[in-house]
């Protein structure tokens, strides 16, 4: 899978590139409008991460060109402007998703994988790792072949881990994913903790080949048992 990261800020570009490489993707980068515009029309990418504010031009203009070329459906717009108009415009121009800076790397992984899943012909809405498999359409979980019962939030949480196996998933990333936007209070970590406890128990009961490891008190990691 080949991914293009269009981002002018070097630090962020490098971080995204490093993170996506860990997922085994082939990553190319572009730091301004001209380079990006050249690359997108010369090479084919499975997913393009596109910053809106770029030197020499707007990411939205590039998106418009991509749409005219019929190549906009695998674009994730990244913007520091959490503005409704930009979001609406980006999605209207055919972008698959819109991600607001700053984001968690785990969130980026989840979004990229969703795009790749959707744009794969005959792709099933399914994520799997080791002997754990989740059917996203029907919200079912299987450990081996046996179905396991998870409540709604547990399902969302486990899905997030399966999209980020072997990666650090911070508690804040989980909280935001599970709670959605505009979380004001952050003292809901005890809830996250109890969710994790339940999932751990259910994974163990189902004899899953994976387990959730606590990482330095900031988050968790899904690893092979």
């Amino acid at each position: 899978m080949k991914i293009l990261v269009v981002e002018d800020e070097q630090g962020l570009r490098e971080a995204i590139r490093a993170s996506l490489k860990k997922e085994g993707f082939l990553v190319e980068t572009a730091e301004d409008f001209h380079v990006a515009s050249e690359k997108v029309f010369v090479y084919a990418y499975d997913c393009i991460l596109l910053d809106i504010m770029l030197p020499h031009g707007s990411g939205l203009d590039l998106l418009e060109e991509l749409q005219q070329a019929g190549k906009s459906e695998n674009v994730i717009v990244i913007s520091a402007k959490n503005s409704v108009e930009d979001k609406v415009r980006g999605l209207a121009l055919g972008a698959d998703d819109y991600l607001t800076k700053p984001f968690h790397l785990a969130e980026l992984n989840a979004r990229v994988k969703a795009v790749l899943r959707r744009n794969t012909l005959g792709g099933k809405e399914e994520v799997a790792w080791a002997n754990v498999r989740m059917d996203l359409d029907n919200r079912l979980v299987f450990i081996g072949d046996r179905p396991t019962d998870l409540n709604r939030k547990e399902f969302d949480t486990l899905q997030y881990f399966l999209l980020n196996p072997n990666r650090l998933v911070t508690r804040t990333a989980l909280a935001e994913y599970v709670w959605g936007d505009h979380i004001d209070q952050s003292d809901n970590f005890d809830f996250i903790y109890s969710q994790i406890k339940n999932i751990r128990r259910k994974l163990k009961q189902g004899a899953a080949a994976v387990r959730i490891q606590t990482v330095y008190g900031v988050g968790y990691k899904l690893i092979h048992r």
Partner: peptide, 24 residues
Amino acid sequence: NENASHELQTPLAVIHNKLELLLE
């Protein structure tokens, strides 16, 4: 407001993502 948002969010994103990688 928009500019401040942009200017602030990007460095915050860099810090945050670099820390994530560091821990990982």
